[in-house]
Design a protein around this nucleic acid. Structure first.
Lengths: 234, 234
DNA sequence: CCGAGTTTGTTCTCCCGTTCACAAACTCCT
DNA sequence: AGGAGTTTGTGAACGGGAGAACAAACTCGG
């Protein structure tokens, strides 16, 4: 039952679980570096910031990698999760749009240490070409197809202004990219089978703002707004 | 029924809806700039990348701002959503950690245009002090408490290395910050009543990698891993 | 004024994810 | 060897969100 072959369907892991596996992986790396050989679901859950029941259920989707009465072998579980996610070897990644954010992403050491290798930086602006960023020179956007094919790139990162993002996405998809991480504040439309994840900085802040406002019971200006609203709708 | 007072509970909006309101707001701004005065739920849903039934249900949590047979007034709905989120006026924000990412965040124009004002950039490294970033000079981290109090800052952004993030969070909370946007790849522990949202770049990539691997049916190296696994567990 | 067409707001059903609680399985001590 | 203590893996109950479907409410043309 715990033996997994390439034909059984033990691999359809719930999306919510997939999103947490990288967190567990990070926590396990931390425990390993601290010299911990074994940990209980309680400890790992604490390190990952989740509830232990949820952790155990998540891990149960991968197989039975723990030992009752003992816990989990840190190194073994770390490897199994890395394998499940697919980061036992590096994925080549291209970043398009080398503005402030693109710079930061290119220099982010976490990519390299967590299973990703930036193979190219592209920008449409000729002024940026041949500039060295993080030891990689910036190339023309038109080199995209060549790079994707030569390096077998499946994952693209979009860090352009919103206006350019859809065009970049279209070109990426046409070139063979199947997964896109989009930092541009716009909705991308892509064909079925292409995954898009979006990171929108101001949306995150706006969500926080909503909760601050709730906690505070509304600001002075908002009280005015609400009063005005009542007068109008009453 | 649609009249809302400060005592009724029309304000407890589902979390999933809150997370989408900023997307609708952005879509409405786009429509307004394109000169559209009125739009149907179908149009707005398309612009926001969601299903129209979901959009209507989301909006129904705010009140009855549409007109049957007609649709929504773009400007009116835009204002109502902005008010609900709380971005009718600017929120002061402080950014801690002015490395590559901090630079990018400080320069990000989307903050200013979407209801946020960066009032201070802080860094523990004296080498960075008095450097001008986006027209704001970088100040010592120890100025945090003074700035939070003077400017009434409720939202803090952490863009430090992981090792420093928990300390920064503790100081922020002690100073009076109630909401934190965390870019450091670590789990923050904060008291009840403090909101934390996290943005982890390599986690997003890892989630994409998982799906790429699934689509591809596993890489060569992974096939080896799986074969090895069968030999061991069989 | 009335009927046809349009679009919202809401109800109902289904599904996914979370949490509780406990049996199964292991270790350790006597 | 056996019992006490520990920890995993999972079955079951529960809650929230997604989507379909429809009644209510509006516009427009005659």
């Amino acid at each position: 039952m715990t033996a997994r072959t390439s034909t059984d369907n033990a691999r359809d892991i719930p999306e919510a679980t997939v999103a947490r596996l990288p967190v567990y992986l990070r926590a396990l790396v931390g425990l390993a570096e601290a010299g911990t050989a074994t940990c209980s679901s309680e400890e790992l859950a604490a390190a990952a910031g989740v509830n232990s029941a949820k952790l155990r259920k998540d891990l149960s989707h991968l197989g039975s990698y723990g030992t009752r009465g003992v816990g989990y072998d840190v190194e073994y579980l770390r490897y199994q999760i890395a394998r499940e996610i697919g980061v036992t070897q590096d994925w080549p990644v291209v970043i398009v749009g080398i503005g402030n954010l693109g710079h930061a992403l290119a220099n982010y050491s976490g990519f390299r240490s967590r299973g990703f290798r930036v193979v190219a930086l592209l920008d449409a602006d000729p002024e940026r070409h041949d500039e060295l960023v993080a030891g990689i020179d910036v190339r023309p956007f038109d080199d995209l197809e060549e790079i994707v094919e030569d390096q077998g790139v499946a994952i693209g990162v979009i860090a352009t202004p919103a206006i350019a993002a859809q065009d970049v996405a279209d070109r990426m998809v046409a070139a063979g990219v199947t997964s896109i991480l989009n930092f541009a504040p716009t909705v991308l439309s892509v064909p079925d089978g292409v995954d898009v994840r979006k990171v929108d900085l101001s949306i995150e802040l706006q969500i926080l703002a909503y909760h601050v406002q709730r906690k505070a019971g509304g600001t002075v200006a908002d009280d005015f707004d609400r009063l005005h609203d009542e007068e109008v709708t009453a």
